[in-house]
């Protein structure tokens, strides 16, 4: 795993390819209005130019494919010059896969000279998952992270708040395992982080 990291870092820092085949993204900022339920405050420096943002929107999170990486809030900046990503967890194994997928998507869309950079600060928080992302998670059967001040985790199957945590860690580091006392179904809860 460590060798992959280094390889990715090296690749991310490689000088840009020649500009052939470039299509420059539109200059207008794309609105990031989110649909649906209570969305906690969005992070300040999310920036993106129109068409490159659309390319990134189509890149799924490899562990929760229903969610795009932009829904997840890990794209910190995007323009034709560079795309800045931040990992969800320090050791998240999907980070390298995501970088590869972003590289492929950018190349396919003609953004061959666009660099991919990774930053750790400010650290990612589940508050950055968009409202749309939360709705997608719930529809997928994963209870989304709670907005600040809300305590009860709702069962994504039946909507009951009569739920209890079974295990702090679920199938991935970002999820915990819960059980619904109403419909008796187990479910994943995306941890607040």
């Amino acid at each position: 795993m460590v060798s992959v990291v280094v390889d990715q870092v090296r690749r991310a820092k490689a000088p840009p390819l020649d500009g052939e085949g470039l299509t420059w993204g539109g200059a207008q900022e794309r609105g990031r209005a989110s649909s649906g339920d209570a969305t906690p405050t969005q992070p300040s420096p999310i920036e993106g130019e129109g068409s490159i943002w659309q390319v990134l929107e189509a890149v799924p999170d490899p562990e929760i494919p229903v969610l795009g990486i932009t829904d997840l809030g890990i794209v910190r900046h995007a323009d034709a010059d560079r795309v800045v990503l931040t990992p969800t967890y320090t050791g998240c194994p999907a980070t390298h896969v995501i970088e590869t997928m972003v590289r492929e998507a950018l190349d396919a869309a003609g953004y061959r000279a666009t660099r991919i950079e990774t930053v750790l600060t400010p650290p990612w928080t589940t508050d950055w998952i968009t409202g749309e992302g939360r709705a997608k998670l719930k529809a997928y059967g994963i209870a989304p992270p709670l907005p600040a001040g809300v305590r009860a985790v709702e069962c994504p199957q039946c909507g009951s708040s009569d739920t209890a945590e079974i295990s702090r860690f679920g199938s991935t580091p970002c999820k915990s395992l819960w059980r619904c006392h109403a419909c008796l179904e187990p479910f994943d809860h995306f941890k607040c982080h």
Binding site: G91, F169, T172
Partner: peptide
């Protein structure tokens, strides 16, 4: 799962 996931966090720190 919890032990393996803690391991993952720690190896991530070590990498950095």
């Amino acid at each position: 799962l919890s032990l393996a996931n803690m391991a993952l966090d720690l190896v991530g720190q070590a990498t950095h």
